[in-house]
């Protein structure tokens, strides 16, 4: 099945601006409606990021619940030096590892069973569809060290600038650039190993 990619890279959503001071103040006061509003404004972006980082729907939902359940406590830690959504993305990235470990274990298991049924495809254009290519990228991402994975997902998949990615990951910009460089190189090798050429 040939792969058709038509959508260009999209810019990050501007939902951040909607989470303003009064809303945060109200949520800090324990107003569940305000907490719900923050959830509504940020959930899509956070859910997409969680899916891309852990590579699995169920694990992403667990991660999202993990983060939003802590929202009342997290509000007290937010200093306002970055947009609230960036702050939450940082929390997601820090809490992702436990969920990622579970997801990777599951994927390894699934891959083992899948290999018994069908051999791995050789070229993406003819033997795999879009879904398979995405699945292969996720499997390739699984082989990266977690910091490189985070840097790659933030910069290349989410489309954040180096400074935003650095702010979310809590590392210097230069580190992000280096990590993305190494991640990309490893991904090329890994995708080749998986039979994508």
């Amino acid at each position: 099945m040939p792969i058709a990619v038509v959508k260009p890279l999209e810019a990050p959503s501007p939902a951040t601006r909607a989470v303003d001071g009064p809303l945060l103040a109200s949520a800090r006061g324990g107003n569940t409606a305000a907490l719900g509003r923050i959830y509504e404004l940020t959930q899509h972006r956070l859910r997409c990021f969680a899916r891309r980082l852990v590579g699995e729907e169920a694990a992403a939902e667990d991660l999202l619940q993990d983060v939003f359940a802590r929202l009342p406590r997290l509000l007290g830690r937010y200093r306002g030096d970055a947009p609230f959504e960036i702050f939450l993305l940082g929390v997601v990235s820090r809490r992702a590892w436990r969920h990622l470990r579970t997801a990777i274990r599951r994927r390894v298991l699934h891959a083992r069973f899948a290999l018994v049924d069908s051999p791995p495809p050789s070229t993406p254009e003819w033997e795999t569809g879009r879904h398979e290519l995405a699945a292969m990228l996720v499997r390739a991402l699984d082989t990266l060290p977690r910091r490189q994975r985070l840097a790659f997902v933030l910069r290349e998949v989410e489309g954040f600038s180096a400074s935003e990615a650095a702010s979310i990951a809590g590392v210097p910009e230069a580190t992000i650039r280096t990590q993305v460089f190494h991640a990309r190189r490893k991904l090329q090798i890994e995708l080749g190993r998986l039979g994508v050429s």
């Binding site: 959508k7 907490l35 891309r52 999202l64 879009r130 991904l187 090329q188």
Partner: peptide, 30 residues
Amino acid sequence: LVDLAVRVLRDETGVEADGAMTRQRIEAEW
């Protein structure tokens, strides 16, 4: 190829999800 795979992953994971159950669980925790 990496760019292509990245775009496909973005498209696949960028769709709006219902997440009603997740929200329900989150509200209960609040």
